[in-house]
Design a protein around this nucleic acid. Structure first.
Lengths: 250, 250
DNA sequence: AATCAAACATTGTCGGACAATACGACAATA
DNA sequence: TATTGTCGTATTGTCCGACAATGTTTGATT
């Protein structure tokens, strides 16, 4: 009896032209051959160079634009090579978190380690101008103790400044989308009077630790602050194991 | 003297048709009106529904496809609503990290907090099958102590399993791209004989802690493991403050 | 009923067209 | 000289239509 071969073949995957073009451009950018900030020729020239139709080239460009690798300055036609920043990563991560129906607990747990890390690093690296920013933020919070929504916004800002002061862009990249999703959920928590006061205390202590360049204390206070979030959340009768929803324009 | 007015105006922003369509679809998906897994009508039908030309619709679709919100099963034409996963987020984050010229230190610092967090969570949540996977991985590492490249791959896998066992999808989302960028850089480190042995010890201890359901010990060992990475890196004479490069297909 | 082939539908790509608009140059004016 | 007005050009956004390649469905056949 003749045996048929065991065909160890992967399904053929013909790549689409627009995809080939897109990955080619992506490679040029990531490898540094097309440096960030430089401009690309017009669509017709690009299409001709890659040997495809302009429509096809446009489809490729759309993908890269969405990716954040290409960008047109507002009100301009010029296509520039761009280094994607937090907001780009955040939008995609937000989608992933929402659609995977991640819970508040998952967000919170992650933040529980990221934020203290940021605070610790910020303690030794924050610039004077950043400390001033924090000071101003704290001042604003004091004045708006009665306005829960404003407090949450200010808190998000406060933590974002600390993250920036950590001089760690990766850390920022990670925590930005999480914070953006998580913190708005604390609006209802802030309605309860003691919450605002505790928030203010934490900010105060944090700033003091940062000014004193004390990493340990900064980390500890940040940890407490994040833990407090959860306590407040539960005290407000909210379920931390419910999936986080989408707060877009309805 | 006549004062010129302070022009508090935002630059006009006329939204492109394809963008309007894209955000509309994104909203439908994120709000759950178009549930994950459902299929979209054909391009012509979509275009007609939105009142645009098919080319325009295709540009919108490209963006969403890149975003990971839409996807065609390989070898199919059908467009399905998709929940973007780690790989989608990772690709964008990778681009951001590389182009912002983040340093190894930034990657490492972030991981220094994320991995222990994952280990701690995994200690109480890992399933038996995951522990078995780790066991198998450890076994494989033992057998390949002489092959540095294989060891690094196995280590990435080991840590990925632990992250999965943390049952925290946000944590996974964050650490995946970082690990993917960072760990390959340790190939040269593994060339030095003691590195493999230390790696093995750490894995062994980690697995033991996970099996014992001891979160503290798991976290501690993971912390040590990550710290070790850096020591090895420096011992190999590599500069931790150099920006991370891109290791794509050249 | 299962198999295979033809008809159909959809996608990927292309060629071209046209209005809207950003850009650059040049003249007019203060 | 510096600003403003004007205009022609280049490029983009969108549209129309077409066609080959390829999934998908249907219908005939065994």
């Amino acid at each position: 009896m003749i045996k048929t071969v065991a065909l160890n073949v992967a399904p053929v995957r013909t790549e689409r032209a627009f995809q080939v073009v897109a990955t080619a451009i992506e490679g040029k950018i990531l490898s540094g051959q097309w440096p960030v900030g430089s401009a690309l020729p017009g669509e017709i020239a690009l299409a001709k160079a890659f040997g495809v139709h302009r429509s096809t080239m446009r489809e490729a460009i759309r993908g890269l634009e969405q990716e954040g690798l290409l960008q047109r300055p507002p009100g301009s036609k010029q296509l520039l090579v761009n280094a994607p920043e937090g907001s780009h990563v955040a939008s995609r991560m937000t989608a992933a978190i929402v659609l995977q129906e991640a819970t508040f607990r998952e967000l919170w747990e992650t933040l529980l380690f990221l934020e203290p890390a940021a605070a610790e690093a910020a303690a030794s690296r924050a610039t004077d101008s950043e400390l001033t920013e924090l000071e101003e933020n704290l001042e604003a919070s004091r004045g708006l103790l009665g306005d829960p929504n404003a407090l949450v916004i200010l808190d998000m800002e406060f933590l974002a400044i600390i993250a920036r002061a950590s001089r760690n862009r990766v850390l920022q990249l990670c925590r930005a989308p999480i914070g953006q999703l998580l913190y708005p959920a604390f609006m209802p928590v802030m309605q309860r009077p003691p919450a605002g006061k505790r928030l203010l205390e934490a900010h105060q202590a944090l700033l003091k630790a940062l000014k004193a360049r004390n990493p340990d204390e900064a980390r500890t206070w940040m940890y407490r602050h994040v833990v407090d979030f959860r306590h407040g959340y539960e005290a407000a009768g909210l379920d931390i194991d419910k999936p986080v929803g989408w707060l877009g324009k309805p």
